[in-house]
Nucleic acid binder design. Structure first.
Lengths: 215, 215, 215, 215
DNA sequence: AATGAATGAGGATTCATTCAT
DNA sequence: GATGAATGAATCCTCATTCAT
């Protein structure tokens, strides 16, 4: 499992022995281990195909143990979502307090790209399990986030093709994450290429409306 | 569900000749009715969440009747896929026999747009159930179709951003189908806007390589 | 399949084209073909594991066609049983009208051996599906036949070991049919060896009671 | 069912400590209770005809409870087989380390008789469900056990009739178990009669080869 | 002499969840 | 902080059988 899949950034899975900062017998990492394994399996096989039995078996605990840490299966997903999408919430908040200039939008895309690659497996999961996720609570949450993102970069009064360009910019970034796994090349370079195209799209969209032109 | 969801174009669901109110002689079309209902439910709720019981109930037949017409649940999906993706197969074949000029690519996108909107629910389904579909036989088939499409419009030696533009063009068309349901506007106009953006993307990708320039 | 499996001795399965003796377009062999295939599958896989679908598929007819010829699945088995065990009925009748001398018993065993190898697959089936067959009508019939056979060769007042010898003689002949498939050697020779042992057993049983001694 | 059917010798079925009449706390022994009931039903009705529903109902638990204790239906049978055929494995091992004299063979038969009657219902089951068992994993296991037993008492270079005698000895013991239920008499006496006949058969087989003669 | 379409009953199996310990 | 044992509801699927044509 890659580190990007880790739920709490820095230390994940690996460091099992040792202290958790307080100097005590480190326990309490089970919750995170559950999240890690769940995310990995959800992303790999989908939400429905991943059973709690499977998660428990991988962790070598019983299903009942999962229920000590999470109220339901859905709750595991919710917790992942909350932990991992905070950067995006912050981005949305940050953008809310700024004028909707082209430069802002470009900066938004740059930051979004970072946020996305910091939680790639989760976003891949959301993308590949839309039908399932739609009837889960995170579905609503995710959708409203996306709508907020669109509000930020898309002008509802612009000509339709320009609106499409903005939507496309966002989706290109999402799709980029897993479609480009099929393409050769250094991941970081690919990310930059995707970002470049997304920025281009938004720039073009802006250009035709003629608000503030890029160089 | 619009008529585009119907499996064999013209008459769908509605026209049930024979005694329908009295007994239940609705001869011969049961197979198609199953496909129609299945597609509708698969697209709406996802593949896993749609049970054969539900399909059967909607049609007012028993589950066993479904098994008379299809060998397995997956088989229903396969049959839908085969029936509905024929136009895309033909498109791929057509494009295979042509030089890969910009004009060809644009024509491919135009035809692809038609093909897509002729089987919108199925494509929406494939998009929203990728995790599930990946381990189904249609998953492989679909993936190989997509790769063929990419071979047609994408130059593997072009700079990365241009390759991304091409991929983005394709995904914009896919995503356009269901994301734009959130946007106001006439469906046909939206389709045209999406197509315009996709063609633009491919054109730009082509331009920077400098093969054959558009006007 | 094999000729011993054929329901009516001489011509089975193979001769499809041609006339059925009257000079007409041979029809009416379907019933027999069903019996042949059913016996083959019953013997190979067991009664429960053999579905009517499978039988029908092998014959390239529909399940419904089977119901034209036989009232139920069980009925197919019953018909096989009736057709194939006639020789044994006749043997029992023949033996019923004779004194129970050692010579009679030996002759019974000889004839029994013939009868058995004339319907080997059916007997193999009966042996290997006793649990199933027990609750079928043929179960009762078969059991009563066996009891009659025992009455013929076994003396209820003989010492227990001698009674066992007689039972063993019969079972040796049954088991001989399929256990010896594991042993190398010419089938006809094996049959003779089995018969020899069976006769020996009955002879010994008789000897100790001292009725009429063999040479 | 007799105690010989019990899976773990001593206390079976009956002794259910805990509140049995009131609630349903009959802790810990559920696994064994499942085995007991399954064996009883398998032997009585056959493997296929015995549904997990039936087993569960008899135990007054849900089907799902069975799946807590056993992975599949087949697994229940496998567990019975493993638990109950250990004595025979030991016998085979014991015999493997000894010269193949007549005395050894006789001792083998004696011990085999004991082993058989210690797991009579299972052996009856194996005998009566051969067709079914053949495609189950225990089928292979059982067959290889039988072949090992034959290796021990049968000389592959002896004349065919003598080989048949040895096979017959083994089958007589198997068949003896359930065919003799039809014959009057004390079970223990019947067992001894069967053993005597089996030993006789092996002795005769040995005698004609002339290795080491009995008294 | 046979088919096409369907049914009702039941099969094994899996799942998320609960709760006393 | 976790387990062992169990449940209830649902899943896909298979089967023997029927009947109008």
């Amino acid at each position: 499992m890659g580190d990007t899949g880790g739920v709490s950034g820095a230390e994940s899975e690996g460091s099992v022995r040792g202290t958790d900062g307080t100097g005590h017998r480190r326990r309490g990492n089970t919750r995170k281990r559950i999240q890690d394994v769940a995310l990995e399996l959800f992303a790999e096989q989908g939400y429905e195909k991943t059973s709690l039995r499977e998660i428990a078996e991988r962790l070598d605990v019983t299903k009942a143990a999962l229920y000590y840490h999470f109220k339901t299966k859905e709750d595991i997903l919710v917790s992942l979502f909350e932990d991992l999408t905070r950067p995006i919430d912050e981005l949305i908040e940050w953008a809310g307090n700024r004028p909707r200039t082209l430069d802002t939008k470009r900066e938004v895309l740059r930051r979004y790209s970072d946020a996305l690659s910091g939680a790639a497996p989760l976003f891949r999961f959301m993308q590949e399990n839309q039908a399932t996720v739609r009837e889960l609570s995170v579905g609503e949450t995710f959708k409203s986030r996306m709508i907020r993102m669109m509000d930020i970069i898309k002008d509802p009064d612009a000509p339709l093709p320009d609106q499409v360009r903005c939507i496309s910019a966002l989706f290109t970034m999402h799709a980029g994450m897993f479609v480009l796994r099929e393409v050769e090349g250094d991941p970081e370079e690919k990310r930059k290429a995707v970002l470049e195209v997304a920025i281009d799209l938004v720039t073009q969209a802006h250009g035709s409306t003629g608000e503030d032109r890029p160089s």
